[in-house]
Simulated assay, not measured.
Amino acid sequence: MGNRIAIYALTERGAKVARKLAALISADSYVLDRYATKNDIPFTSLKDIVADKFTEYGSHVFVTASGIAVRMIAPFLKSKAEDPAVVVVDQEGEFAVSLVSGHLGGANELARLIADKIGATPVITTATDCAGVPSMDLLARDQGLIIGDIGLIKHINAAILDGEQIPVYDPDGFLDLSGFSEYFYGVETVTGLDSCSCGIVVDWRRHDLSKKVLSLYPRCLSLGVGCRRGVPADEILELVRSVVAENKISFESIFCMGSIDAKSDESGMLEAAEILGLDLKFFSAVELNEIEVINPSGMVMKHMGVGGVCEAAAMKLADVKEIFVPKTKSTRVTVAIAKVASR
Results as ranks from 00 to 15, higher is better:
Pro75Phe: 00
Leu175Met: 14
Phe251Cys: 01
Ile200Arg: 12
Arg71Leu: 01
Ser195Ala: 14
Ile323Ala: 08
Gly14Pro: 09
Pro134Met: 02
Gly148Arg: 11
Tyr8Gly: 11
Phe43Gly: 05
Ser178Leu: 07
Glu311Ser: 07
Thr189Gln: 11
Thr331Ile: 02
Ala314Met: 06
Thr191Ile: 01
Lys80Gly: 03
Arg71Glu: 03
Arg112Tyr: 10
Ile156Met: 03
Asp208Cys: 09
Glu290Val: 03
Val201Arg: 09
Ser26Glu: 15
Ser66Phe: 08
Gly119Cys: 02
Gly102His: 09
Ile275Thr: 14
Thr55Phe: 14
Ala336Met: 12
Lys47Tyr: 13
Met299Ile: 14
Ala127Ser: 14
Val97Ser: 08
Leu10Pro: 07
Gly258Ser: 06
Lys78Cys: 02
Ile166Thr: 12
Gly119Gln: 01
Trp204Cys: 09
Ala51Asn: 15
Cys227Trp: 00
Val70Trp: 06
Leu177Lys: 06
Ile254His: 08
Tyr57Leu: 07
Ala338Tyr: 08
Ile68Asn: 11
Pro326Ala: 04
Val86Glu: 05
Asp142Asn: 15
Glu12Tyr: 13
Ala285Ser: 13
Pro296Val: 00
Pro171Tyr: 03
Lys154Gly: 01
Ala65His: 13
Asp319Met: 12
Ile146Cys: 02
Lys80Pro: 08
Val244Trp: 00
Glu274Ala: 13
Ile254Thr: 03
Lys211Val: 06
Val63Asn: 06
Met269Thr: 10
Glu56Cys: 11
Glu12Pro: 04
Val306Ala: 06
Ser222Lys: 10
Gly179Ser: 07
Asp83Lys: 07
Gly226Ile: 00
Leu21Tyr: 03
Ala159Cys: 12
Cys198Gly: 06
Thr189Arg: 13
Ile41Ala: 06
Leu104His: 06
Ile150Trp: 13
Lys281Glu: 14
Phe180Met: 10
Ile118Met: 03
Ser195Tyr: 12
Asp265Gly: 12
Leu138Val: 13
Ala69Gly: 10
